[in-house]
């Protein structure tokens, strides 16, 4: 296996436990998701892999080499897209991408060719010769991705690569993430966007408060939800209910929307209940479908304040198991 992390512990200031015994491994050609809410310890873990942060205990190996004692090896072999913006204010997009390619050891011709390929594939040609300072946050983040992908190491670490990026280019970016794995890199994708991760990763680990709470494929993690369905209700404007029935488990409420799990044996009862709400004019529409990774995520993380809901902001918490 390419990247192997074993029992990783990081304590800051003697009492802040950022990583609490994290273990995982990533294979060559695999896109591996690291999911968790803000403050779960994802970036702390990444910073230990590339030698910015010293683990309190535990081991990190890349290609069998211990990179805790040899951080230079990690930097030679990991391409990294930081969560923070890259320092390219005075550089054009092309200059920034090519410079990193050359610094990582690529030769001029292959770096230029690959830069052009990435710019074309991600459709950022119109900004290719614009200075970093003038680029929008989303385009800068795509450029940062290109900087990580131009001459990829055997491990590619992408920390929240799709933040600020428009939906069309997000799809293009996911294609490029997949092709990095196809080219032979092990891709570690750090995100809190569960819906996107479900489509993009081969396997994933969910961490919360520094601990691994689940590892496997999206299907593995959803396994425990197999005998459940997902029910989504959209309120009429101005309507809400103060209490929902027990049959709606792990419910997440946004302004006009409630999403929860329904046990399969209670599906008929739930549909009747939803239909009655619709007839009373409380609910505008409702949807019943198979559970998603997001449902498994909410169950594992045990809180509802962490899930991105596509419409509206989460305003309150109805039930947390």
């Amino acid at each position: 296996m390419l990247l192997k992390i074993n029992d990783l512990v990081k304590v800051f200031n003697k009492n802040i436990l950022a990583n609490d015994g994290i273990s995982l491994h990533i294979e060559k050609g695999e896109v591996f998701g690291l999911l968790g809410p803000n403050g779960a310890g994802k970036t702390t873990m990444v910073n230990q892999i590339i030698g910015l942060t010293m683990p309190t205990s535990g081991s990190i190996n890349i290609n069998g080499i211990d990179v805790v004692s040899n951080p230079d090896y990690a930097r030679q072999n990991c391409s990294f897209q930081s969560q923070t913006q890259v320092p390219i204010a005075g550089l054009t997009a092309i200059q920034a991408i090519e410079l990193v390619g050359l610094i990582r050891g690529g030769n001029n011709i292959e770096v230029q060719k690959r830069t052009k390929q990435l710019i074309d594939n991600l459709e950022i040609g119109e900004w290719a010769n614009k200075m970093g300072a003038t680029l929008s946050g989303g385009v800068r983040r795509i450029v940062a991705f290109c900087m990580a992908a131009v001459f990829p190491g055997s491990v590619v670490i992408l920390d929240e690569p799709t933040n600020d990026i428009d939906p069309v280019r997000r799809r293009l970016l996911w294609n490029q993430v997949r092709s990095l794995a196809d080219m032979g890199s092990a891709v570690l994708l750090v995100t809190h966007n569960v819906l996107e991760a479900e489509r993009a990763v081969d396997r994933l680990t969910i961490i919360d408060q520094g601990k691994v709470v689940g590892t496997g494929t999206a299907a593995d993690l959803k396994g425990q939800d197999e005998d459940h369905m997902r029910l989504e209700l959209v309120f009429e404007p101005g309507m809400q209910f103060s209490e929902h029935p027990d049959l709606l488990e792990h419910a997440v409420t946004s302004r006009r929307r409630v999403i929860g799990r329904i046990a399969e044996k209670k599906v008929v009862e739930a549909l009747e209940w939803a239909q009655s709400l619709k007839e009373k004019g409380v609910v505008e529409e409702f949807f019943l479908g198979p559970t998603t990774l997001e449902d498994a995520y909410v169950r594992m993380v045990g809180r509802t304040d962490v899930v991105e809901i596509t419409e509206g902001d989460i305003v309150n918490e109805q039930s947390t198991s």
């Binding site: 030698g51 230079d72 930081s82 990193v100 050891g105």
Partner: peptide, 16 residues
């Protein structure tokens, strides 16, 4: 200023 903006988190990750 560069420290605040996270510049070094990126620059120190490069193989140099």
């Amino acid at each position: 200023m560069a420290r605040k903006e996270g510049t070094f988190d990126y620059m120190w990750s490069l193989p140099i």
